[in-house]
Amino acid sequence: MNTELLLQLLVNGVIVGMLYGVVAMCFVLIYKSTQVVNFAQGEFLVLGGWVCLSLVVQMGLPFILAFIFTLVFMAIFGILVQQIILRPLIGEPIISVIMVTIGLSIFMQSLMNWIFGNDAKRFPDIFGSLSVITIGGLNVETAYVMSLVLSLLIMAVFYFFFRFTRHGLAMRATAFNQQIAQSLGISVKQTFAMAWAISALVSGVAGVVMGIVSAVSNSLAFVGIKVFPAVIVGGLDSIVGAVVGGLIIGVLENLAEFADGEYLHIGNLYTIAPFYVLIVILMIKPYGLFGTKDIERI
């Protein structure tokens, strides 16, 4: 057994899993507070990556400025999507809400391919991100370490925001019960807009990070699909569950790759294993590890 490779893959799994966790958190945030399933989460990610990249490469802005501009842009974009596309569908059946975000994802995908091109593009090497550091005998690229730190930072900010700020409390109240929240003077409209803004913003950050780690391309949108196994494993309405689910899926992917490469030789198990897990979880524990079980009253 190739222990070194296994360890290396496990570390990769944790780092990628943390990023999945961040994106899954954004997904859960929208679902929890507005009951919308966002199939376009992956496109949000790609959009963030592209905007930041073209600001750096084409406009020649310094990275930090481009990054801040990307954050502002993504927040405004999230609010606009919520206002224009999702507000008219409040109260419509779930199939309509699912389909509208799927329509949005197709639209964004082809529009971005048109504007930014089909090829993967790399960020200029700003952080020396390709240099390799050795931790405990394992080789890890600096970019991966940076992504890990940033993921942890985002999670900490999320925790702080929901636990200690007024808006966070308002969002938790809205997620719990919209009518009660409204009668207590919380603006549900504002809360919805904020949920989308935060979610788009953080997805944008994840997109930039993934762009630095690998490259920006439309294939990053596949993270938006990987998020589904993660949130189902963790439970659709649990932020903690999203992080744990993301970690599990990230590690599982890499374990699948290890098993595949060393023993099974099936090929491509890496991409498909999370979906088998997804089906199994749905069969035995549909509300995931941390999700609230729906109790239906007649």
């Binding site: 596309i85 389909m99 949005l104």
Partner: peptide, 10 residues
């Protein structure tokens, strides 16, 4: 196609 889905649903 994406736009048609969105516009019809709205």
């Amino acid at each position: 196609v994406g736009a048609a889905i969105i516009l019809f649903l709205i």
